[in-house]
Amino acid sequence: MKVIFLKDVKGKGKKGEIKNVPDGYARNFLFKKGLAIEATPANLKELE
């Protein structure tokens, strides 16, 4: 799953980066803790 990092996550990504991460990791950790959001076309446009 492609995500946009909202905060730095040690060993995974830095704020503003767009990366592919495992689906479970994104849903169960990154999204729940507010560390990242899904890289949807709308979210990507908002980032620019």
Rank of each mutant, 00 (worst) to 15 (best):
I37P: 00
L6A: 02
A36T: 02
F31D: 01
T40S: 11
K15T: 08
K32R: 12
Y25H: 04
I37F: 04
V9M: 05
G13M: 03
D23L: 15
M1H: 06
N28V: 06
A26L: 08
E46Q: 13
L30Q: 00
E46H: 11
L30S: 00
E48S: 13
L44H: 06
K14D: 05
L47W: 15
K45S: 10
K2Y: 14
K14A: 09
V3H: 00
L35W: 13
N43P: 04
L30R: 01
G34A: 07
L35K: 03
V9P: 00
K7N: 07
V3I: 08
V9L: 06
N43V: 12
L47P: 05
I4E: 02
L44V: 11
K10E: 12
N43L: 11
V21Y: 06
I18Y: 03
L44R: 06
G34E: 06
P22D: 11
T40A: 06
E46D: 14
D8V: 04
I37S: 04
G24Y: 14
N20W: 15
P41N: 09
E17Y: 03
I18G: 01
G34N: 11
Y25W: 11
E48A: 14
K7L: 10
F31N: 02
K7E: 11
I37T: 07
A26E: 07
L30I: 01
F31P: 01
K45H: 09
F5H: 00
L35H: 04
A42N: 12
P41D: 14
D8W: 07
N20G: 07
Y25L: 09
G24S: 14
N43Y: 09
P22Q: 10
K2S: 12
Y25G: 03
I18H: 04
R27D: 04
N43H: 09
I4A: 03
E46L: 13
E17Q: 11
Y25F: 10
M1G: 03
N20D: 14
T40R: 05
K14G: 06
D8E: 08
G34L: 08
L35N: 01
K7M: 12
P22K: 10
K33S: 09
E38L: 13
D23T: 15
I37H: 04
E46S: 09
E48M: 14
P41E: 14
A26H: 04
A42D: 15
A39M: 07
G13W: 13
K14Y: 12
G34I: 03
V9K: 02
A39P: 03
A26R: 02
F5K: 00
I18D: 01
R27V: 12
G11L: 05
G16L: 05
K12Y: 15
G11H: 08
N28W: 11
L30F: 02
A39W: 11
K33A: 13
V21M: 12
L30A: 01
I18Q: 04
A42E: 11
G11Y: 09
N20Y: 15
G13H: 11
N43I: 11
G16M: 04
A26P: 01
K33V: 09
N43T: 10
V3L: 03
T40W: 04
K33F: 15
L44Y: 05
L30T: 00
K45T: 09
K15G: 03
L35G: 01
K32P: 15
A39Q: 01
L35E: 03
L44Q: 07
V9Q: 01
K45G: 10
E38N: 04
L35F: 13
L44K: 05
L44F: 07
A36E: 00
R27S: 07
E48Q: 14
T40M: 05
K7T: 13
I18K: 03
N20F: 15
K12Q: 15
N28A: 12
A26S: 04
G16Y: 09
K14I: 09
L44G: 05
D23Q: 14
V9R: 01
K15Y: 05
T40V: 05
L30G: 00
K2Q: 13
K45V: 11
E48I: 14
G24T: 13
I18M: 07
V3K: 00
F31E: 02
Y25P: 05
G11T: 06
E48W: 09
D23S: 15
K45P: 06
P41S: 11
F29R: 03
G34D: 05
P22A: 11
P41I: 12
D8K: 06
G24W: 15
K12N: 08
D8T: 12
K19G: 08
G34F: 09
G24K: 12
L6V: 09
G24E: 14
F5P: 00
I18L: 06
V3S: 00
G24L: 13
G11K: 05
T40L: 07
F29S: 04
G11D: 08
G34R: 09
E38Q: 11
K7H: 13
K45R: 12
F31W: 02
K2R: 15
K7G: 05
N28L: 10
A42R: 10
P41W: 13
L6S: 02
F31Y: 04
E17W: 04
F31S: 02
M1S: 05
A42M: 10
Y25A: 06
G34V: 03
G13L: 02
D23Y: 15
K19I: 11
V9A: 03
I18V: 12
P22M: 08
E38A: 11
K12R: 14
V3W: 01
K15L: 08
A36Y: 00
F31L: 12
D23P: 14
I4M: 09
T40Y: 05
G16K: 03
K10A: 13
K14M: 13
K19F: 05
L30Y: 03
K45M: 13
D8N: 12
A39F: 10
K19T: 07
L47V: 11
L6Q: 03
K12I: 15
A36D: 00
K33H: 15
V9N: 01
K15W: 04
D8P: 05
V9Y: 04
G16P: 00
D23V: 15
I4T: 02
N20S: 13
E17K: 03
K19V: 10
K19H: 12
E38M: 12
K45D: 10
L6H: 02
K45Y: 09
L47Y: 14
F29N: 08
G24F: 14
V9W: 06
N20L: 15
D23A: 15
V21T: 03
K12G: 13
A36W: 01
E46W: 15
G13V: 05
G34K: 10
E38S: 08
K45W: 10
K33D: 05
G11N: 09
E48N: 13
K45L: 14
G34T: 04
E38W: 07
